[in-house]
Design a protein around this nucleic acid. Structure first.
Length: 863
DNA sequence: TTTTGTGGTGTTTTT
DNA sequence: CACCACAAAA
């Protein structure tokens, strides 16, 4: 992504040659005709096309008109997308700057850029319009900010800023912010914006539902406030461009001329606003209608027609479309290619409309639909299991993945049962170690959970085992408190009107500028309609404040003046460092004696380091606003732990799917709130999970799980019953199946003696049966006589044989420990503690917060 | 201003 | 149960 606002000149270049006429359908790749043609062309069939299957080739070569590529999991979706772009470029149909390619995540955008670079040999510098919806939105908006009354140096607020702002507004309205939580309203605004609804457009019901009927009013006030702050929220990055295009048909036309080819990744995840945005860009003025507005309206229910849509109302005349406001696009010269998979739509809860993909052919009559069903990732069993499961959903476009790489050695999908979640973690840990001993990389394994609280148990277990793991997702770097504080300083230097930043840091570190001062500043600023920093500069000239506060404020204001002056002269990384030093911010953490303070200082250093690759402070701020992720270190060999949601798009040799129980997966809330649709989305999530696996897929369920502190017995997920017997087996069970304590939900196959009749004779099942009856077990499921077959643990030799529950060390060192009894140590996960026991490399530590734990010495440091 | 106590909550998450 | 946010008390 470009790090600065400077841009290639607008509408500069034209292609060297006019776009060619549409070609005749491409002959099947590898076919005789194709080879003959290749020979005719001097045998120079571009090598980027080599190795594509016929469907992929068609998807790449059908450049004219609308195309929908239904790409199942692992069918080479990204490859098609990137090759298609390479094809457009290398055949001279368009310049890089004439291709609009949108993705959902920065990661996907980055990957695409890299892969195109590989295909066309590094010349992707000029793909300025490849990016996420939001980053492209920012780009448009920076150019045309004045059309929506913004200045082009507007700030992008993140969710945290938004919530604080909303809270202020709620309080300003004299409402109880307990009864009307800011967070909830911020969420509502987001939902509205995802649907493309501005304050005037929201349904009356929604408007009344919040704040004693003041919902709409608040939304208006919020937008007004954003204007004065010269700020945007994420939703605005979509909404503003839509408004700009609607109000400025000529400008839109310029973009129509510019974007000769439009490509959309993960189309099933588009929300209504994104859909509208795309339509505006895709819908060329047809011969009949000159209005580009037609059919680009949101909403479906009566009464939520956008106010600014003027006289042009729905264009569905003659179309039996059940979405009357979504007309078809008749002019089929639009070269738009959407790639997606309806079976992997898992973001309905945040506004994605699967309907967009289901309706593609209606929206774009004459669209070519190409299905990619040949899977290059998984074994037949994995695909078979996934296919059978997803077939339980209705309303699919209907694809069935297949592979012809069939290997009798391939394992079936394994279903395991455990007594409780602790045992589940233990069992999966063991399974991983077995694989590890067979020289499998930890990097090739992943544990995919439904909800993040499940991760903890695995982390605990892996810490004990000394097994490397990596948590993907979770709290992100730029969301940490210290990073956000630092960023607020930088933001305020770059954009003095950023009141949210001002309020965040005005008393951080403590300067004695408490609530009273801030409120005074706030009132002063509002009364004069100036930013708070400016108000502060004014107010220190008066004697409105107490001398103490006045002095403190004086210092701050002057510091900021200083920094702003240095903005042009001092290199930005240096300046950033100076800001943090001179403001006393780093000192604040140095003085802090809590366990996390050193980590925070380290993060601040990391922040400065990461600024180096940007050319300016502004460029960096923009990056952080849009790209909230920081890279993980890939060097480490570690098991990945993540949610199913964040696993989409990834693949692993071995995938573990724990927690397949009713209530958790499918999640109860999903069922309660969205009923059947919710269940289907959960099922798609299961489908995504299974199809992440290349070779091995292990599904787990437990009989007891602790939910909100209390133990509950659980029943196996209905999804287990939806798996096909031919591709699934009950695993070589290495632990018991807790078959009692079942709730009254319904009959499950796993309630019966033989869940899979034809697996009945497998050793695994027999053992499971044996375990079930023989194991003596107390209420907590600990069994006697369950010695795990586990010999030759790491370098520890036969000594490594373990009994359930014993601490297992990867290597038992005989060297004297580098620690002593009573040493004060720090552990990344557990914090500070004192050593109370030493046994080789195993330490017993009394942690201040986490209590007594046994950990390997490699994981702690002396404080 | 910092500490301690209370209450409310408890999926999924990108931008 | 365990965490967070926020409010009252030290």
């Amino acid at each position: 992504m470009s790090n600065s606002f400077d841009d290639i000149p607008f509408f500069d270049e034209e292609p060297g040659e006019a776009p060619r006429k549409p070609q005749a359908p491409a002959p099947a790749a590898g076919g005789i005709a194709a080879r003959a043609m290749a020979a005719r062309d001097g045998g120079k069939r571009p090598d980027y096309l080599a190795g594509l299957n016929p469907e992929q080739t068609e998807a790449v070569e059908t450049l004219e008109g609308p195309v929908l590529v239904l790409a199942g999991a692992g069918t080479g979706k990204t490859r098609v997308l990137t090759t298609r772009i390479a094809h457009i470029l290398s055949t001279g149909r368009a310049f890089p700057s004439q291709i609009l390619a949108v993705t959902f995540t920065n990661k996907a955008a980055r990957e695409m850029k890299e892969r195109i670079a590989l295909l066309v040999g590094g010349a992707v510098e000029g793909m300025p319009w490849l990016g996420t919806f939001h980053s492209i939105g920012v780009k448009l908006l920076r150019r045309h900010a004045e059309l929506v009354s913004l200045r082009s140096d507007f700030t992008i607020l993140d969710t945290d800023d938004v919530v604080r702002l909303v809270k202020q507004l709620i309080q300003a309205e004299g409402l109880d912010d307990k009864r009307w939580p800011a967070k909830q309203f911020a969420g509502m605004i987001d939902t509205w914006k995802n649907k493309g609804l501005s304050p005037a457009d929201i349904p009356e019901g929604d408007a009344r539902a919040f704040a004693n009927g003041k919902g709409r009013e608040l939304y208006f006030a919020y937008q007004a406030r954003l204007m004065t702050l010269n700020a945007c929220d994420f939703g605005d990055l979509l909404m503003h461009p839509i408004a700009i295009f609607r109000k400025n048909p000529d400008l839109l036309k310029e973009y129509h001329q510019r974007f000769r080819y439009i490509l959309v990744d993960e189309y099933q995840d588009t929300n209504t606003a994104q859909y509208m945005w795309l339509r505006l860009l895709a819908q060329r003025p047809s011969r009949k209608s000159t209005s580009p507005l037609v059919g680009a309206m949101p909403g479906r229910a009566e009464g939520d027609i956008p106010s600014d849509s003027g006289a042009s109302t729905p264009a569905s005349v003659g179309s039996p479309d059940i979405f009357p406001t979504r007309g078809e696009i008749r002019d089929t010269t639009i070269n738009i290619c959407c790639v997606g998979d309806d079976d992997q739509s898992i973001y309905g809860w945040r506004g994605a409309e699967v309907d967009n993909i289901l309706r593609f052919e209606k929206d774009f009559p004459g669209a070519k639909v190409i299905k990619l069903e040949r899977n290059y990732r998984s074994t037949e069993h994995i695909l078979g299991a996934a296919a059978h499961l997803i077939a339980h959903n209705e309303g699919r476009l209907g694809k069935t993945l297949f592979t012809d790489r069939v290997d009798p050695e391939d394992a079936k999908v394994q279903v395991h049962a455990s007594w409780d979640s602790e045992e589940e973690a233990r069992a999966i840990g063991e399974e991983i170690e077995v694989l590890q001993r067979k020289q499998h990389n930890l990097n090739d394994m992943a544990i995919l959970v439904r909800a993040s609280f499940q991760m903890r148990e695995f982390e605990d277990r892996f810490v004990t085992l000394g097994l490397n793991y990596r948590v993907i997702g979770g709290p992100r770097f730029y969301e940490r408190l210290e990073i956000r504080d630092a960023m607020a300083y930088f933001r305020l230097v770059a954009q003095p009107a950023d009141d949210l930043a001002f309020e965040r840091i005005i008393n951080t570190p403590k300067r004695g500028l408490g609530d009273t001062t801030v409120r005074a500043l706030h009132d002063y600023a509002r009364a004069r309609d100036i930013p708070m920093l400016a108000a502060a500069a004014d107010i220190i000239e008066t004697d409105e404040l107490k001398p103490k506060a006045r002095k403190a404020l004086f210092d701050v204001v002057h510091s900021f003046r200083n920094w702003q002056q240095r903005l042009e002269t001092t290199p930005h990384t240096e300046l950033a460092e100076q800001i943090l030093e001179e403001s006393g911010y780093t000192d604040m953490w140095k003085a802090d004696k809590t366990a996390e303070a050193p980590g925070r200082l380290e993060n601040l250093k990391e922040l400065i380091r990461s600024m180096e690759s940007f050319e300016s402070l502004r460029g960096f701020l923009e990056h952080v606003a849009l790209v909230m992720d920081a890279e993980q270190n890939e060097d480490l060999d570690a098991v990945s732990i993540m949610t199913l949601h964040s696993a989409k798009g990834l693949e692993f040799d071995t995938v573990f799917l724990p927690g397949w129980e009713e209530g958790l997966f499918p999640h109860q809330r999903s069922l309660d709130e969205s009923g059947r649709a919710g269940l289907e989305e959960e099922r798609r999530l299961a489908y995504v999970g299974i199809t992440r696996a290349k070779r091995r897929c292990h599904i787990w369920f437990v009989s007891n799980r602790r939910i909100h502190g209390l133990w509950q017995s659980t029943i196996p997920s209905r999804f287990l019953d939806e798996l096909p017997e031919t591709h699934v087996e009950v695993a070589e069970v290495e632990q018991s199946y807790g078959g009692y304590g079942r709730g009254g939900y319904g009959q499950s196959r796993f309630d019966k003696a033989d869940p899979f009749a034809n697996s009945y004779s497998t050793p695994g099942w027999k053992r499971a049966q044996a375990n079930k009856t023989d194991a003596t077990r107390d209420n907590w499921g600990t069994r006697s006589g369950h010695a795990v077959e586990r010999i030759g643990y790491g370098e520890s030799g036969p000594k490594g044989r373990t009994i359930e529950g014993e601490l297992v060390a990867k290597s038992t060192s005989t060297e004297p420990s580098r620690f002593q009894m009573g040493d004060r140590v720090f552990h990344l996960k557990f914090g500070n503690g004192n050593i109370t026991g030493i046994e080789g490399n195993k330490l017993t530590i009394d942690f201040d917060r986490a209590g007594q734990k046994r950990v390997l010495d490699g994981f702690v440091e002396r404080v």
